[in-house]
Every structure is written in C-alpha cells, then in structure tokens.
Design a protein around this nucleic acid. Structure first.
Lengths: 336, 336
DNA sequence: TTGTAGGCGTTATCAA
DNA sequence: TTGATAACGCCTACAA
C-alpha cells in the first residue's frame, strides 16, 4: 500500500537541476562545507519538501560501514536487561551507532539464526548480554575477528558483600542457590560465594543448583532440599541463611520457606542478586545486591566503539563494575 | 579489528568457477529449483567453507525489500512491553520479517529521530506500541502511505470488568486513577470507566489524572486527593474503591493509602490494569485486569504482514483483544 | 564549488 | 541449467 515511492538522490538532483554528488555532499555533515551555503539551503529545503531520506542500504553498500551493532539478548522478559539495553543505546548513540536486537531464547537454533542475520546485516560488532559459557557460536564469532569486549558486574565482590552482611549478622551456615552452571554469572557467583565463605573461615554450606533463573526453580530447589532434610538426608536445620545468585531464585526460596512455615528473616535470612525493580513492593522486601545495569550496557557499548575506532587494546578490554548491598527486610539475625 | 574481510558472492563464484548468478540462485529458496542438485550442493559446501553470507544491504538495494519492520517502543522498562515484543517477533518471523526496535522515550526528539532512522532503513511498515494520540509524526507516517494496523486491548471491556467486580462486592463510590490523557490507553480506559459507571447507574466518582504510568505518580495523586479531603475540599471519605488505569499507578495508590493508615481491602479496594509480572509476590497482591500482551504483539505483526502482502482491508484493520479479571487480595467488600 | 565515472554486492531479465 | 548484463542508490576519487 506504500503509495508514495521513496525519493532517491537522483530525484532530488533532477528536481534541483544539480548533480547527485552535490546532494550527497549536502547530506553528510563531514562534507557539507564543500558546497556553497545557498546550495546547501536549496538542497535541504527540497529534501524536506520531497521527503528525501538517504537509503541506508545503498549508503552502507557504498561505504562498507553499517553503523549497526548486534545485541544478543537471552530474555528481554528478565527485568535485568531493559536497563542494560538503555545503557547500550545511549552508549552507541554518542557515535551515531544503533543497536539491532536479537532475542536468543526462543528456540534452540535461535542464537545461530540471530547471529547469521546480524552478520548478514553487516553489523560492525556484537554486544552479548549474559553469554552462556563456551558456546560454539561465541567461538565462531571470535573467529570472524569481531570485537567482543566485556563490561560485567564484579560478581565476586557482589557475593562477598552478601556473605559479609550475613556473617556480620551472626550467620555461620549459609547456603547458596546457584544459577545454571552454563551461564557465566551462574559460575562466577558460585565461585564468589565459595571464596567469600573461605575468606570468613566458614565451611561452604550446601550449594543448590537451579537450572534457570526463575521463581519456580528457586522454589523447587529449596523445597526439595528442606523435604530431604525432613527425611534426614540433609541438615537443613542448621542453615540460617540463603544467598541466591538471582532475585527470582530468592523470591522462589521465599515461597518455599513460607510453605514450610518458616519465617523470613526470623528463621532464615535471604539475599538476592541484581536488585530488580519493585522489590520494595514485595511481601517480604528482599535484601539484594544492586548491580549497575545501565552502566554495564553503557560501558560495554563504549568499549565496542572504542575498538571499532581502533583504540588499541580496547577489543579485549574488560570492565568490572562494582556492586552494592541494598538491605531490606529479608535479612536479620539468625535464630538464637 | 575485523580481520577477515567479508566474503562476497563474487569470491564464491570465482572459487567455484561458476557465475555469480548461480550462487545467487542457490541462496534464495524460491529459486533453488532452477539449478542442479549437484551444483546446489557444491555451492552450499563452499559457502559454509568460506563463510559466505548474503549482504543484506546489497540484496535489499537490488530487490527493494528490506524484510524489516520498525517497532516503536515508548519504554522497554515497562513490563507490559517485553511480552508484546515477543509476540511481534514471532508474528514477523513466520514470514521471514524481523523487527528493528527503537526506543522513543529517551529525549523529546527521540521519536522523530527513530522514525527517520527506520524510514532510512526502508522498513516496510511500522508497529507502534502505545501511541501518544494525534502525534504529528504519526500523521506523517500515515501520509507516507505506510501501514498502521492496530491490535489493541479492549480497554472498555477491561474497565467494565473492573467496575463490575467492585459493584458486585458492594462498592458504589469508585474512583478512577487515570493515565496520561495523551496516551491512547489513558483516554480509552478513562472512557471505559465512565461508561461502566453509567452502566451501573452510579455517579462517576472523582477522576485523578496522573501524568505518567509510574508508582510515583499514582502515589502522588492519591496522597494529594486524600490530604485535600482532610482539609474538607474533597469527600475522600466516601470513596471505597479505586480503579487504576495501570498496575504501577495502583501500586502507588497502595503506598499512599498505607501511608494514610488505610487498609486494603478493608477500607479501600484497589484494582490495577495489565496484570504485570510478580504481582502475586507483592505485599498486597493486586487484583488486576489481564491483557493479552503476547497476543497483541503477535496479531499486530500478522496484520501488518497481511497488509504488506496486499490482503485487502488489512491495512486499516483493528483487532480488539478481550481482557480478563484476575482477583487477588486488593479487593473486598466495602466497609460497612 | 560542482560535475563525472566507477564501484559497492545483489537480483532480475534475457540470452545461450 | 547456466551465463551475461544492467540496474538498485549512494559514495569517492578525480576532473573541470
């Protein structure tokens, strides 16, 4: 139904009786000064009159630059990502770049498909939110020579904050609700937990593995553990605190504990991770580790662009952003 | 740093000693049958070997079709949108289209910029999530002849459900927390509220205008109203229920009421709209109107594509999706 | 300051 | 079944 055909540079040139290269020059800020002010004015007037817009594809074909960056997102439904995305957008925009997003969590081949499409669009680089470790396609990407800089949260430090907070309150038996081992955050946070426990000379309590960052998984893991404990196969009685790798897991834990008749924080303390929105509105406002969502996206974007501009070393650069403890009402002293 | 230059169709053709037309044919499903199976095999083998990928820009320049659809999002941070986006992705993918997203809530000129960029990318159509009414650029878009089909939630029906629920519980003085007048949902839901009240022969209670869909605005509006009431300028005493145009506004209302020492639902009942995620985890699980997020996105996408394919009438088609009442614990009988 | 010619990687249309 | 040629819309030397 597109009634009006797109106006091309030739149409504009013909309309003004000038050559298209003149139009071209008028449209690029870097070369505007090469033409007379009057001409510039005429061109601009005519352009907006006829509704001319540079054909991005043609321009990109000619210059070889797309000004596009591929952004791989595992799950836009997870509230961690929207702010990261905003950071990315802002970071890219500073240099006239823009993101092309691709959801990678749909079906198994989604990642491959997404990468293919983006490669076909000739994106100049990739930004990958929450990579699954050692994925084959990630390697492939590396091999194409594309940039893969990283801006990540300091997970070790975040877990240290969580554990320190609990230790300070008097806890000694602290359990970890771990995220999927296949995700970089899952592994890093678990290691962070282990290191922090060691740092305090405490025996690393049980580590419960969750297969996804979801409320259901958190609930399942904790419920299973406690019911095993009831049958004497675990010593849940000793655990007085839970450090989760993710807020959703923590929320699930909360539910499981409540179902068991345990009170938070009187019987068990719980700490989440990410400080997702609306936590303060929850039935039990969750103590959590706030990561710098926006900043992560922004820095990653800047890093990529620095690399594209050829800043030395920026390609492999990694920026670690510190986290922060936000104490709410899910943590308190252990039962006497 | 992109070390490896992109392989072109010419490289591939040279490598195989065939003409590029042959390669081109092998790459398009619609014309694969024109070449011999052996040739197809050779081409495919060589393609994956050399890492050839069609240059989308070149292809689009030649065919004039981008297979891209522009998606205008006001605020990806709002939990309503991610599921809509998923629906859009799925709807588009069925025909090989893909979305190019643009956030329109950054700065004042963001919309214009976004539309410009998308037009320059030669998207074949637009999908607009939550349009501000009568916006100039929307008109412009219409004028370019682009398709603007609509898949929306039946706001009138949703509000009717909310009001009916409260009336059934015995409420007669029902207030409305209205969204911004400039947004289509703001207006439609307010009108829906008014109509529903009229339907029950009830006087439309006060309508509080919020200038954004946020917890803060909801809190502000309700707090202001109640404090005015204290000074005798409003009759807050009579209001026993609040129908909000949005869950965030409702959550804000909850906070304001709590601050006043009012209990929900004993003193005042509150109904939200959208049924955002994690509502059941909240301190006061909110009764809300569930809209068909995913379906909205999906249907809108299909509508657009039908239009692009030239299905008659699909361009102006509007699909209305029914909502559903989800009763939780923020609504109950009015105080005696 | 403006015009000219050639090329970017594909596809479409003929011709072989 | 394959090959040749001319677009597609823009940019970049280089020439005027």
């Amino acid at each position: 139904m597109k009634t009006r055909k797109n106006v091309t540079i030739n149409d504009l040139a013909a309309h003004l009786g000038v050559h298209k290269s003149t139009i071209s020059r008028a449209m690029t800020s870097g070369r505007r000064h090469l033409i007379s002010p009057e001409m510039l004015d005429r061109v601009e007037r005519a352009a907006s009159e006829l509704g001319y817009r540079q054909n991005w594809a043609a321009s990109m074909l000619s210059t070889g630059k797309s000004k596009a960056v591929g952004v791989l997102l595992p799950d836009i439904t997870n509230p961690v990502f929207p702010p990261i995305l905003r950071g990315i957008e802002d970071g890219l925009e500073l240099d006239g770049y823009f993101p092309i997003m691709a959801d990678t969590s749909r079906h198994p081949q989604a990642v491959r498909q997404a990468v293919d499409r983006l490669l076909s669009q000739r994106v100049e680089g990739f930004l990958i939110a929450s990579a699954t470790l050692a994925d084959r396609w990630l390697e492939d990407l590396r091999n194409t020579g594309d940039l893969l800089p990283a801006a990540i949260s300091d997970d070790a430090q975040g877990m240290a904050l969580a554990v320190a907070h609990l230790v300070e309150l008097g806890h000694r038996h602290i359990m970890h609700l771990s995220g999927p081992e296949s995700l970089s955050t899952g592994l890093a946070r678990r290691n962070g937990y282990l290191a922090a426990m060691a740092h305090h000379d405490l025996p690393a309590g049980p580590v419960l593995l969750c297969h996804a960052y979801s409320i259901e998984e958190g609930e399942r893991a904790v419920a299973e553990y406690w019911s095993k404990a009831e049958r004497g196969k675990a010593e849940a009685g000793k655990v007085t605190a839970i450090v989760a790798a993710n807020d959703l897991l923590a929320l699930g834990a909360l539910q499981a504990l409540k179902a068991r008749g345990l009170c938070v924080p009187q019987d068990v303390s719980v700490v989440g991770h990410n400080d997702m929105p609306w936590l303060e509105q929850m039935a039990t406002p969750l103590t959590s580790i706030r990561i710098q969502h926006y900043e992560i996206g922004f820095r990653a974007a800047r890093l990529l662009i620095d690399g594209l501009k050829g800043a030395p070393g920026s390609a492999q650069a990694t920026v670690m952003l510190r986290s922060q403890l936000v104490v709410r009402q899910s943590t308190g002293m252990p039962p006497p």
